[in-house]
Computed example of a mutant assay.
Amino acid sequence: MQYIYLHGFASSPNSAKARDIGDRFFKIQTKLKIPDLNAGDFSQLTITRQIAQVAAEFSNDSTPVTLIGSSLGGLTAAHLGQQYLQVERLVLLAPAFGFLSHWLPKLGYEEVQRWQHEKYIMVYHYGEERSIPLSYDFVIDAAQYQEKFLQLSIPTLILHGKKDEVIPIEASRDFARCRSWVELVELDSDHALGDVMENIWQVIRLFCQLP
């Protein structure tokens, strides 16, 4: 089994969650790939680019893959599972289902219109600790990745905080409700899930049958 971790939007392989899970895999002597989904050019980020980048990490010998994705990385992982039969298991941490419908209203109608007109908007990048311009192509591309297309019965574990202020837990509840192959674990935490990482690890170990 190949294990790959997908970090979230405006994040990096050096995020607290990525480091925490990476350390835990290291301790059980199991390899975990954590690609940098910024690919050196956050400004031109799209979900399509992320999917292509992660798929390129898959081994050529049809080794099965478990994807662990956080937030937008979780959404990307879910769509990778839809497109590539090598993906046999998904672990989604606060997956960004309905990402645009949650994010764009917070920006406001006028700001989104300005973004569309000017082609770029400044977005604070937590990995870089600075604001970076992001192309409006991100929005155009993301609009095609809707949950209604995710219908393959891939064993899926979702861990989501009940106090999530970025992606409301209702998004994961709605997703799991009509998909019998999805297990949703609700946690008493926020979007970062930083205070429940030990709980998360125990559930992941069980689900993935890790040592």
Rank of each mutant, 00 (worst) to 15 (best):
S135T: 13
V112H: 13
L67S: 03
Y136W: 15
P105E: 09
L107P: 13
S70A: 12
G127E: 10
V91R: 09
P133K: 12
L93C: 04
G73M: 01
F99C: 03
K119I: 13
L100D: 13
Y109N: 14
K106D: 07
Q86A: 04
L92K: 06
P95H: 09
H79T: 02
Q86M: 01
S101C: 05
E129C: 04
H117S: 12
Q83W: 00
G108L: 12
V91C: 07
R130H: 14
Q82F: 00
E129Q: 14
A94G: 07
I121G: 12
F97R: 01
S70F: 13
L104R: 14
L85C: 07
A78N: 02
P105R: 08
E111G: 05
L93D: 06
E128N: 05
L72M: 15
L92F: 09
L92E: 04
L85M: 11
I121W: 07
F97M: 02
K106A: 09
K119S: 11
L100N: 11
F99M: 10
H117I: 14
Y109V: 15
G69D: 07
Q86L: 01
A78Y: 00
Y136S: 08
F99D: 02
G69E: 08
H102Y: 14
E111W: 05
L80I: 13
Y136F: 15
Q82N: 06
V123M: 08
A77T: 01
Y136K: 02
P105H: 13
V87S: 05
Y124I: 09
R130M: 13
R89N: 14
E129R: 15
L67F: 06
L134G: 09
F97Q: 04
Q113C: 13
P133D: 09
L67I: 03
L72R: 03
Y136G: 04
L104F: 06
V91Q: 11
H125M: 07
L85V: 01
H102G: 05
Y126C: 07
Y126N: 13
V112T: 05
I132H: 08
E110Q: 15
A78P: 00
I68W: 01
